[in-house]
């Protein structure tokens, strides 16, 4: 209820005046907040987090998966269109080309291919273990993470020298 006295009402002094000081000339006042929101800073990205074996391996799992599957997709698609461009992607040609490389190049290429493969495979088993609800505490995730790192490096080297 308006608590203005009868005298004030009679004298016409019950009117409140609120001067509009903010953006009186703006076409659409409902746009003020959206405009301010557009100027907000974007939340910092991965760089603010301390590198930890948990999330770094998670990222590497996706990166290695992308690299392995990407290689498979590129090779298979290239093999499909090879006759059109006269490329030689038959196993005999590839084996001959690879065999002609110096030993150091062979070992380097084999290691580069083997490490993402062993890591993604072993980390995949870790993921399947999590899917069964096992090894989900932070300590266990750290321990199995480093185990996977060690095993994938060792097995990749073993495969590279096969």
């Amino acid at each position: 209820m308006n608590s203005a006295s009868p005298v004030a009402v009679a004298m016409g002094r019950n009117m409140q005046i609120r001067p509009a000081t903010s953006a009186a000339n703006l076409a659409d006042p409902t746009k003020i907040l959206p405009q301010q929101r557009l100027n907000r800073p974007v939340a910092p990205h991965l760089t603010i987090y301390r590198p930890q074996v948990t999330w770094v391996l998670s990222s590497l799992n996706r990166i290695t998966g992308f690299a392995l599957s990407g290689s498979l997709y590129l090779f298979a698609s290239a093999y499909l269109v090879a006759p059109l461009f006269g490329w030689h992607l038959e196993s005999a040609s590839l084996a001959a080309a690879f065999g002609a490389l110096p030993l150091i190049a062979k070992v380097l290429i084999k290691s580069t291919v083997a490490l993402p493969f062993t890591f993604h495979s072993l980390n995949g088993i870790r993921h399947l273990m999590w899917d069964l609800g096992r090894g989900l505490t932070n300590q266990q995730v750290i321990k199995t993470g480093w185990t996977v790192v060690g095993l994938s490096v060792v097995s990749a080297l073993a495969i590279a020298f096969m």
Binding site: Y73, Y79, S91, A92, A95
Partner: peptide, 27 residues
């Protein structure tokens, strides 16, 4: 789809993925 058809071609006209990898690896 291209990968599936490409791998089908590779399986039917070539030696297959595992055998091909083995041959390249041992080359």
């Amino acid at each position: 789809l291209a990968t599936a058809v490409g791998l089908y071609e590779f399986e039917t006209n070539d030696v297959g993925i595992t055998e091909a990898l083995k041959r390249i690896w041992k080359a």
